[in-house]
Design a protein around this nucleic acid. Structure first.
Lengths: 193, 193
DNA sequence: CGTCTATTTGAATGTACTCAAAAGCGGTGG
DNA sequence: CCACCGCTTTTGAGTACATTCAAATAGACG
C-alpha cells in the first residue's frame, strides 16, 4: 500500500530513504465505501488523498442540477480539491467514491509541515502540479477543438481500463455531453465497425 | 519594470531582499514587436517570460488549420509553454505577441539554477502553478456546462480591459467558437440591452 | 485612394440537448 | 425460481446551439 505511494513519488522526484519515510509517515490509510462522499460543496477540503484502490470522481454541480466531472482518480492517482485544500476556503466541488476503495490521506497541516521540514517535498508537488496542469491544457485544447464523438474515441483509446469502469452518465459528465447523446455516439460507432 | 516583477513575486511568496535580488538578476529584458512569434510548434520552449507590457496569446493550431487559445497574457502575467519548458521537448503550441511589448525572460537553465540555489523559488512556482491550475479547473467547468453565450458574457465581465483589446477572431479561439457565431452573440446581446 | 484585415449577415447544415417513453439488467426478497 | 425494484441504457421526435460558406460592409493604415 505504501509501496504504491513510494513508487509514485519516486517517479516524480528522487528522495532519500529518510525523506521518503519521513514524508510517508504523514499519511493515514482510510477505507471508503461505494457512493461515499469524501468532500461536498461548501466544505473546506481537509485532505489530499493518494488512491491505492477504488475509483473516485471529482465533479461540480451547477444550478441546473447537472454535473461536470473534472477528473477521475483510480489506483496511483492523487485526489483533492487543490483550490480549497491550498486556500482552506469552502469548496465548489464534490468528491465521490464510485467503488469500495482505499486511500492514503494527508492533512493540510501535515502537508504544510512537510513543505517546511522536507525541502524536496516542495519540488515534488511543484513537479506533479506542473504535469497535471500540462495534462489539463491538453484536455482544454481538445474541448476547444474536437466534437464529442472524437473526444469519446480519444478517451476510450487512452484510458480503456478506466472507460469500462464508468457508466454512460459518469463518462458523459466528463466529456461535457448528455448521456443520451453519448448513447447515440456509441451506437453510431458500433454500427460502423 | 523589475518592480512589477518583484511585486508579482511578493504576491505569491515572501522572499528576503537577497533572495529577491538573486532571483531577479536571472531575468533579461526583451522587447517584442506586434505579430512576433516567441515560440512556434516543434520548437523547444527555452524561456519563461514575465510580461511587463504588451499582450500575448498562447495557442494551438490543429490539423484543420483552426486555432485554440489556451490563454492570453498581459501586464504582470507569466507566459511559457509549461510542458515544453519543463520537459525540454518540442512544443505543440505557438506564442504570439499581439502588440509591441516587453518581457522579462528567464531561461530553463537559470530557472533550474534558481530551484537549486534559492529554496523559496520552488515554493514560489509551486504556489503559482497551483493557482493557475485551479483557474484552469474553473474554466474547464465552464466549458463543460455553459453555452458560448454565457462564456462570452462571463469573460467580458471578468476581464473587461482584456476583452476590449482582442479581436473577435482572437476571443472566439479562446471561447472555442467560430468568429461568425461570436459576432451573432454580440448582436443578440446588443439588441437586448 | 487602394489594400488588408476585421466584422456582419444570411442560408443551409450539422452537432448536441431536452423530454418522454421503452427496454435491459442486476440484485433482493418472497 | 421468479417477480419486482432501482438504475442504466436506448430510442425517437422536436428543438436549440453552433458551424460552414459566401458575400457584403466597415475600419485602419500607408
Amino acid at each position: 500500500m505504501f509501496d504504491l505511494l513510494k513508487k509514485n513519488i519516486a517517479k516524480h522526484t528522487a528522495l532519500s530513504d529518510d525523506e521518503m519515510e519521513h514524508f510517508c509517515r504523514l499519511f493515514h490509510p482510510q477505507t471508503v465505501k461505494r457512493k461515499q462522499l469524501l468532500l461536498r460543496e461548501g466544505d473546506v477540503c481537509k485532505f489530499e488523498g493518494f488512491v491505492t484502490s477504488g475509483l473516485f470522481r471529482v465533479y461540480h454541480l451547477d444550478s441546473n442540477g447537472s454535473e461536470q466531472t473534472l477528473y477521475f482518480a483510480t489506483e496511483s492517482w492523487w485526489v483533492t480539491d487543490i483550490d480549497s485544500f491550498t486556500t482552506q476556503r469552502p469548496s465548489q466541488l464534490f468528491i465521490e467514491s464510485l467503488q469500495d476503495g482505499q486511500l492514503l490521506m494527508i492533512s493540510a497541516q501535515d502537508k504544510e509541515y512537510a513543505y517546511e521540514h522536507i525541502p524536496k517535498i516542495e519540488k515534488l508537488f511543484r513537479v506533479m502540479t506542473q504535469k497535471t496542469h500540462a495534462a489539463m491544457q491538453r484536455r482544454m485544447i481538445d474541448m476547444l477543438s474536437k466534437t464529442a464523438d472524437k473526444r469519446y474515441q480519444d478517451f476510450t483509446e487512452r484510458y480503456p481500463e478506466l472507460a469500462c469502469r464508468l457508466t454512460n452518465l459518469q463518462l458523459a459528465a466528463y466529456l461535457g455531453i448528455s448521456h443520451e447523446f453519448l448513447s447515440k455516439i456509441r451506437k453510431k460507432i458500433a454500427r460502423s465497425t
